[in-house]
Simulated assay, not measured.
Amino acid sequence: MNLPAWVALRRGLFVPASSRAAPDVRDIGRDHWQTTTFRWFTAYAAIFSLAFMALLGVIEYSVTRAMMRETDSGLRWQLRYFDSRSDASLAGAIDARLRRPDRRDNFYGLFAPDGRWLAGDIRAMPTGLALGHYGQSHEHTRGQTFALDPGSVRSSLRAMGEIRPDGARLVVARTLSDVRHVHDELMRALIGGGLLCLTGSLCAGLVLSMRQIRRVAQIKRATRRIANGDLAMRLPVAGRDELDMLAHLVNRMLDEVERLMGEVKSACDGIAHDLRTPLTRLRLRLSHAADAMEQRGEAVLAGVLVGARGEADAVLGRFSALLRISEIGAIDRRRGFASVALADLVHELCELYAPLAEEKAIDMHASVAPVEPIHADRALLFEALSNLL
């Protein structure tokens, strides 16, 4: 007979999970956002998106720096060009440059030593502009960025300047519209690409987690059937990932459990069948002996033999119950199940054991609360409660 869980635990025996307190697993797999697959994929997506945005940031910085260097190189060539002009012809050379149709985005300014404007479309001397000296190679001169308004539109310009031999200040500048355009395009690509990668990765992670959830749900349904006694059921195997490796291990364990359960069932069935035959013969002999004693008028001895025959019937009932246990474990038989009134069963047990309790000087009382009838095997419940009592 199966022992109560607390008795089995005290004796160090195995107790099924259904007999111990366990968390409710009915909600497993309902929340796709808390699966390990989704969490790892989200972490990977975040890392990948940050790395992608960092890469675009480096590209943006490199491209804009390269364009700035190209702009500075053009400004240095213009300073070298104006160095080839005399101070008297410098204003005319600037005006000629401004009238050329291919001047593009270049701007110029010539200022007196006191800051007064002399020529060019830059009307005010940029504040803080570092000025070189006439005749230098300007190889290491770097431009500076200012917000100036040559003409009617205020724009961002890259500027260089030098002090002429007569003390005048020459300023050459070039617009950064191309650099700003490339910078803005790269920033849009950085932000949009990062968000697109993150969103796509999250969607892919959700899809993969839903696939894993479906597999977990299949495994859960299989384990429920196994827990209900269907030892022939096996966990589904779909590929070669971690879940499949675990399913293979569990299936091998179930194969071994089913084999051992089959051996135990065969042994129990063999013992029960082997003992039922001599017990049946013993009952028949006790019945014949009781009839013979009653015919001879020895009623007392006949009563004893009838009681012994009743004990033999009880033992035979126990063996029948043992056979039904193996059948119930294999979900092959439910014929012994019926509506059982637990209160009547307890009162019957107390009446059965009352003489034994009185013989041992034990006061036994039964206090039974009203309980709804249950669907169970009455003989097996009788055996279980008898063991406890």
Rank of each mutant, 00 (worst) to 15 (best):
D230R: 09
D230H: 12
D230N: 05
L231R: 13
L231I: 13
A232P: 01
M233C: 05
R234G: 02
A238N: 12
A238V: 15
G239Y: 10
G239N: 04
D241S: 11
M245E: 12
M245D: 09
L246E: 08
L246T: 07
A247Y: 04
H248D: 07
V250W: 05
V250A: 06
N251D: 14
R252V: 11
R252F: 03
L254T: 00
D255C: 04
E256H: 13
E256W: 08
V257N: 10
V257H: 09
V257L: 09
E258L: 11
L260I: 09
L260K: 01
L260E: 10
M261N: 14
M261W: 07
G262Y: 00
G262Q: 02
G262W: 02
E263P: 00
E263A: 06
V264W: 15
K265H: 11
K265M: 09
S266E: 14
S266V: 11
A267D: 09
C268M: 14
C268R: 15
C268N: 11
C268L: 14
C268P: 01
D269K: 11
G270Y: 07
G270L: 14
G270P: 03
A272E: 00
H273P: 00
H273K: 04
D274K: 07
L275H: 05
L275W: 06
T277V: 15
P278H: 05
P278D: 01
L279R: 06
L279F: 12
R281S: 03
R281Q: 11
L282N: 11
L282M: 14
L282W: 07
L282T: 11
L284M: 11
L284Q: 13
R285E: 08
L286H: 02
L286F: 00
L286A: 04
L286Y: 04
S287M: 06
S287I: 02
S287V: 05
S287Q: 13
H288K: 04
A289V: 03
A289P: 02
A289F: 11
A289S: 14
A290W: 01
A292V: 09
M293F: 11
M293A: 12
E294P: 00
E294S: 14
Q295H: 12
Q295A: 10
E298T: 02
E298A: 06
E298L: 05
A299V: 07
L301R: 12
L301V: 14
A302W: 07
A302S: 13
A302E: 05
G303A: 08
G303Y: 03
V304H: 07
V304S: 01
L305N: 06
L305A: 05
V306I: 07
G307M: 02
R309V: 01
A312D: 01
A312L: 14
A314R: 10
A314P: 00
A314L: 12
A314G: 11
V315A: 15
V315E: 13
V315L: 15
L316Q: 03
G317T: 07
G317C: 00
G317M: 06
R318E: 09
F319Q: 04
S320A: 15
S320Y: 03
A321M: 13
A321K: 12
A321I: 08
A321L: 06
L322F: 13
L322I: 15
L323H: 01
L323K: 00
